[in-house]
Structure formats: structure tokens, C-alpha cells
């Protein structure tokens, strides 16, 4: 009896592994298909502009407000620790580096996944469930070029801009708390920040990170939507998969990127 239970469990693990590998392969092929259909989709730039509106502009409020608050909290907590070592002047460095390198891309990416990624999945999934994608195909219009590619690129373009805005608002929030509220000297706040934050190593790497996260979230979102079972239940579980999957993927990719990007600067 226990042997059969064990075998059953192992079999289930095996089947699960096989399914996830098959799905991964399918996703990779889908990614290639999206890329090959992109020129046709991007030729009609208005479609992509529309998706930048839905993915980017409509995410602005949540990104700006969250950025401001994260920056303010970071300043309060950072100041609390730094002033014990008499290093409260370094608050600007702490806040700027945390935001530009990590929190900006990662938190903006997580917010983007739950705000825009879920919307993209739900929209494409519903279009599939209501046969709009089939109808398009039957009208000799390729849904990959007409529906998927613009949404994908809209997300990829929006994400780095959102992350930069998040970091900017965060630094502004830290300025408000650190300089205006606590009374750190404004000159040393900005000056120390500038002397340490490097354009290429910190800011460019941060932008690269956010672009990668944008790619990951957009790809997962369009894939889950396109792959959703054409039922109400299918669309809802696809939306959940988008948020959970892209959040985990962002964090995992962040680790890998950090290892490669900041290997030479004393972090490792």
C-alpha cells in the first residue's frame, strides 16, 4: 500500500513536470510567433499607442502614489538606522540606490503585473471566449498581429517609463521626509547621492532591469490570455496565473540580473 502511494505521488510529480516543460516550450514558441508578427502589428502604430494608453497611462496613478509612499517610508526607516551611526547625511544615497537599483524596477514591475498584466490577460481571454479571436481569423486578420503584438509592445514600452517614474517619485518622497520633515541638509542629501549613484552601473542597469521585467510581464500576460480556456473559469484562472507567475518571474529574474550586473561593484 505505501509503495503504491509513493509511486502515485512520483507519477503525479512526473506528470506535472512533463506538463510544465511542455507549457514552457509552447510559451517559447508563442514568444517567437509574437516577435515574427510584430512588424505587421507595429506598422499600425496607433494600435500600440492605444495599448500604451491602457497599460501605461492607466497605471500612472497607482505607480506615482506607491512610489511616493515607498520613498517616504524608506526615508523614515533609513534615517532611523543611519542616525545611530551618525551617517544620516547618507540618506540620499540609501534611498536613491535602493530605488534605482531594486525597488523601482521590482515594485513597479509587481504593480504593473497586477494592474496591467491581469487586464491584458482578461481582455485577450475574453476575446477568445467570445470567439472574437476566431472571428478575426475568419476575417483573414491574424490575431497575433492585430491583438497580441500591440499589447505585448505596449507593455514592453510602458514598463521602463513607469519604473523611472516610480523611482523619481520615491526620491521626491524621501526628499520631502528627509529634508523637509527631518531637516537633513538639502545640499548633502543631493550631493552625496550624486557622488555615489553611477549613471551606467546604477541607472542604466535599473532601466535594463525594468525593460526585462516589462518583457516578462507582457509575455506572460498575452500568453496566458491567448492560452486561456474559453470559459469564465478559464479566464479567471488565467488572470490569476498571470499575476502569480509574473510576480515570481520578476523576483527570480531580479536575482539573476543583480548577480550579473552588480558583481563587480563590491556587492559580491
Amino acid at each position: 500500500m505505501p509503495a503504491s502511494v509513493l509511486a502515485d505521488g512520483l507519477r503525479r510529480i512526473g506528470a506535472g513536470t512533463r506538463r510544465s516543460i511542455a507549457r514552457l516550450g509552447f510559451a517559447a514558441r508563442f514568444f517567437v510567433a509574437v516577435l515574427t508578427h510584430s512588424p505587421a502589428g507595429l506598422r499600425r502604430i496607433r494600435l500600440t499607442l492605444r495599448e500604451i494608453y491602457f497599460a501605461g497611462v492607466l497605471s500612472l496613478v497607482i505607480i506615482l502614489v506607491s512610489g511616493l509612499f515607498v520613498g517616504m517610508v524608506l526615508a523614515l526607516q533609513g534615517y532611523d538606522v543611519l542616525q545611530r551611526y551618525g551617517a544620516s547625511e547618507s540618506l540620499g544615497i540609501l534611498v536613491a540606490l535602493s530605488l534605482v537599483r531594486e525597488l523601482g524596477p521590482v515594485v513597479a514591475g509587481l504593480l504593473f503585473a497586477s494592474r496591467a498584466g491581469s487586464a491584458i490577460t482578461a481582455e485577450i481571454g475574453l476575446m477568445k471566449a467570445t470567439e472574437q479571436l476566431s472571428a478575426m481569423e475568419m476575417m483573414a486578420v491574424d490575431p497575433l498581429a492585430r491583438v497580441v503584438a500591440p499589447r505585448f509592445w505596449g507593455g514592453v514600452i510602458s514598463m521602463p517609463l513607469l519604473a523611472a517614474l516610480f523611482s523619481t517619485l520615491g526620491i521626491f518622497g524621501a526628499y520631502l521626509v528627509g529634508v523637509r520633515l527631518i531637516g537633513i541638509d538639502a545640499g548633502s542629501f543631493w550631493g552625496n547621492m550624486q557622488s555615489v549613484v553611477d549613471f551606467r552601473a546604477d541607472i542604466v542597469n535599473g532601466i535594463i532591469k525594468s525593460a526585462v521585467f516589462g518583457l516578462i510581464v507582457s509575455l506572460i500576460a498575452v500568453f496566458e490570455g491567448y492560452d486561456a480556456a474559453p470559459t469564465a473559469e478559464g479566464v479567471s484562472s488565467a488572470t490569476t496565473r498571470t499575476v502569480v507567475g509574473s510576480s515570481l518571474a520578476i523576483l527570480a529574474a531580479d536575482f539573476v540580473l543583480t548577480v550579473f550586473m552588480f558583481r563587480g561593484v563590491g556587492v559580491l
Binding site: 534605482v100 523611472a164 523611482s167 523619481t168 547621492m193 550624486q194 557622488s195 553611477d198 541607472i203
Partner: peptide
Amino acid sequence: AILFLSLKVGN
């Protein structure tokens, strides 16, 4: 925002 980060925050 990118410009601000590059010029005012970065070096």
C-alpha cells in the same frame, strides 16, 4: 523621469 535620474540623482 529618466533624465532626472540621470542628471540629478546620478552622475
